[in-house]
Simulated scan of single mutants.
Amino acid sequence: MNTSITLADYAHARAGDKGNILCVAVFPLNPDHYQWLKRELTPERVAAQFSGRRPASIKRYEIDSLQALNFVLEGALEGGVTRSPGLDRHGKSLSYLLLAMQLPPPA
């Protein structure tokens, strides 16, 4: 029996950037899963998922009116668009890194 799920099976995400700051908003596919998402998708789990990017800090904002969680990762874009040698300087594809996270399934 599978004891974990992939976040992408239950949510979608949108990423953006401002300088060296990555923002990733996560939305449950089913509104009934928003409370589960709030409980399971913690800043600590996001930090573990993004450990290779070495963010200086991670803040989570709950946007209940949209049933969304917004994560702000400072220092996660290798210096930002004008300084990064990375292929995805804007961090747009990093929403998929978050969606690949394994979590306990919703009840």
Rank of each mutant, 00 (worst) to 15 (best):
P55L: 10
P43K: 13
T82G: 12
F27A: 04
L87N: 02
P55W: 08
L87T: 11
G16D: 13
F50S: 05
Y61L: 08
L94M: 15
A56Y: 08
A107C: 07
M101A: 09
L37M: 13
R39K: 08
L77W: 06
Y10S: 02
V26H: 03
M101R: 03
V24M: 12
R45V: 10
S65W: 04
L73R: 09
G19H: 04
M1V: 14
I58D: 00
G19N: 10
L99P: 04
N30S: 13
W36A: 01
R60P: 05
H12P: 00
P106G: 00
F27Y: 15
S93M: 10
E78T: 03
G86C: 10
N30W: 01
Q102S: 14
A56N: 14
N20A: 06
P106D: 01
A13E: 04
K59A: 11
L37T: 06
T3P: 01
S4K: 06
L99W: 05
E62G: 13
A11L: 08
P105Y: 02
V46S: 14
D88P: 04
R60Y: 08
A76R: 00
V24R: 10
L103G: 01
R60E: 12
R60M: 15
N2E: 13
M101K: 03
G91A: 07
A48L: 08
L99E: 07
D17F: 03
L73G: 13
G52A: 12
C23V: 09
P104F: 00
N20S: 08
P28I: 06
Q35G: 05
A8Y: 02
A68S: 07
G91K: 01
I5F: 01
V26K: 03
S95M: 14
F27P: 00
G16R: 15
I5T: 06
G52P: 10
S51M: 01
S65H: 08
V26M: 05
P31V: 12
R53N: 12
R45A: 09
L98M: 08
D32N: 14
L103R: 01
L103A: 02
W36C: 03
R53S: 13
K38L: 09
A56L: 12
W36I: 11
F50P: 00
M101I: 09
R14V: 15
I5Y: 01
P43H: 12
P85Q: 05
A100T: 04
A15H: 03
G19Q: 12
Q67T: 06
H33W: 10
P31M: 05
L73F: 08
I21F: 01
P85I: 05
E40Y: 02
T3F: 06
T6L: 07
K38G: 01
L87C: 04
G79Y: 05
P28N: 02
L22V: 09
L22S: 13
Y34I: 09
W36E: 04
V26N: 06
S84M: 14
I21H: 01
S4D: 04
A13F: 06
W36H: 04
D88I: 11
P106E: 00
I21Y: 01
F50Y: 15
